[in-house]
Design a protein around this nucleic acid. Structure first.
Lengths: 349, 349
DNA sequence: TTGAAAGCGATACCAG
DNA sequence: CTGGTATCGCTTTCAA
């Protein structure tokens, strides 16, 4: 079923059917209705490939995120969901590409073969070859996260520096003096992941400002690593009374480690960090955290990209978000239990 | 940059370039190398729309899942991730479509406009108009989950009946006599969601077989609902000593409710269910559960679909999986505390 | 082993 | 207001 067949049955030219559909040229009511009847009868829908070939637009956006092997973090998945829904609302389809490098086959297909009109990139690194690549090609794209020098590019991001600092200040205000930082996996830090770097920076500087004793850790993206990491923390400094984390996937393990060490939240230990609300609310006690507004970020990224597609050559725009800390139940005043002096160090049993 | 330009620069016909690329016709080494050099020089990649138009295949599969408004469950997202990775490994792209009905715009675009070669459907209902629609059109598709009468269709599914029954038997073997069932939200049950129905069935029958006293509940897909649901359970029958759940998103809330009621797992209460392992391992104590093998299911769905695409007309195939229960730490013998008689009912404070 | 040309199914320009 | 036709970039048949 194609446009020629519709034209034949309606007794008009193919171009007339096309114009009746697009409205880009006036068509008499009579003709339009005649055409519409045929279309409804046959359930005709124009072929997307042909249309894309003819007018150079696919009405599809690419969503590029690194392959995760076994598991994605909840946050990554939240972004995917929000981007897809926002795009659907704007009548765009979303093509997924699990690629971490600009040389990945899937990445090449998306861009090189022009399968998409534009792309949204996730999991940005401070130095990101994918971003540079796209910028060089002047390929319309928006990043969720920002590189070291984001000037001239389109992005929506979180102010991880400020967020981590806010966590530190919150803990310092509560009287905590010895605080640990639980980051994403070391391999991601080394690879230059933005959130890991800026978060660490913000934490370190704010802690120095407040004169806190700190230790920083990298931690795998899973509960078992979280538990192991917590054991290390209490082993290396049993007097630690609080931690800040960016690692939502490890959160459950951190909690478990605390429970095993006999530390009761928030009485003798406080936990806070940067985590999407749905995960913060899953743990008990619920996590006091700067909530990552995944839905808003996905929606804004889509809006920016569509704006860029509709108005090529416009000045780069971006959104830097700094969500407030939501007070829940995982932080409390330090010293409630003076734990380190009344019990043996954990992690040694 | 198109195939004509490559042909011109290499001094050959367009068809020769095409054949050099596809290998569907012998091309002399000399010619091929000449062409390849030009291609490498210019970084040429064939246009996907043109190719799709010419040969009728898009090398893209559609992944259809219901719009979730605010949040997807972790399991849904796990499926998405696994399908995307499996497809990428087979050089297929994945187009996402958040649509619950066959009338959704996104659904129509995907199929009607032939944006995809085939589709994978998630969140199947016992009576599913999307599945019927696709079957009528003979559109290549595979479902994750199965309808009431899955004969003649392609699917990969979980034997929820057997899984729920296995949970019941596990608890009964441990001596539990009063057991609750925490299902997905009522609205999904009413809508006929397969897992909710078959799971409930399996639970009910197995419980009857073992002579257990049971209560069944529907519960919203979020921690707050889980907590509320647990309060109701203990309020309506304080002597309940165990529960089975399909609702992974509520799990954190169920645990919290138990903690608030002073029930210690697994000493005075046991929890088990059907949940993907990564979520089962997030909670403390880790959940003894039939692990949903999301990755395997996604991979198998992709394999089945590609098989169906490559060999049209083949006999329908399917995989029914029954993963075993992984013993972790959330279940234990009943009666360890004889809780109901020594403390007031929970949920009344 | 290679070239020429006819589609694939739309869009949009040029005429009338 | 409508029709005819070139065009998008690739695949594949037909001929040499």
């Amino acid at each position: 079923m194609n446009i020629g067949e519709i034209a034949r049955r309606a007794g008009v030219a193919r171009s007339t059917v096309s114009y009746a559909l697009s409205g880009k040229r006036p068509v008499s009511d009579e003709t339009r209705e005649k055409i519409q009847r045929v279309i409804d009868d046959l359930g005709y829908r124009p072929n997307a490939s042909a249309r894309a070939l003819a007018n150079g637009r696919t009405s599809t956006i690419g969503l590029v995120f690194p392959p995760a092997g076994n598991h994605y973090t909840g946050m990554q998945l939240d972004f995917i969901g929000s981007v897809v829904e926002a795009a659907a609302a704007r009548d765009y389809d979303v093509l997924l590409s699990p690629s971490g490098m600009d040389s990945d086959r899937s990445f090449q297909r998306l861009l090189g073969e022009r399968r998409v009109d534009g792309a949204i990139l996730m999991e940005i690194r401070l130095e990101d070859e994918r971003v540079d690549h796209l910028a060089r090609l002047d390929f319309p794209s928006v990043t969720i996260g920002r590189t070291a020098r984001p000037g001239g590019t389109w992005w929506v991001g979180l102010d991880h520096t400020a967020l981590a600092a806010a966590c530190v200040h919150h803990l310092a205000d509560l009287g905590h003096r010895r605080v640990a930082f639980v980051n994403r996996p070391e391999q991601l830090l080394r690879a230059g992941y933005e959130s890991a770097h800026r978060g660490l920076d913000g934490f370190t500087k704010a802690a120095a400002e407040r004169g806190l004793a700190v230790r920083t850790y990298c931690c795998g993206d899973d509960p078992a690593s979280g538990q192991a990491c917590l054991e290390r923390i209490l082993h290396e400094d049993p007097a630690t009374t609080a931690l800040v984390t960016l690692n939502e996937a490890a959160l459950g393990g951190l909690y478990r480690g605390l429970a095993h060490a006999g530390r009761h939240l928030p009485r003798d230990f406080s936990v806070t960090g940067v985590v999407a609300s749905r995960w913060a609310e899953t743990v008990t006690p619920q996590l006091t955290a700067a909530d990552v507004p995944a839905e808003e970020m996905g929606r804004r990224a889509v809006d920016l990209l569509i704006e860029r597609l509709d108005h090529p050559g416009g000045a780069p725009r971006h959104h830097l978000l700094t969500p407030p800390i939501s007070l829940r139940a995982s932080t409390g005043p330090a010293g409630g239990a003076s734990f380190a002096e009344t019990t043996p160090p954990a992690g040694t049993s």
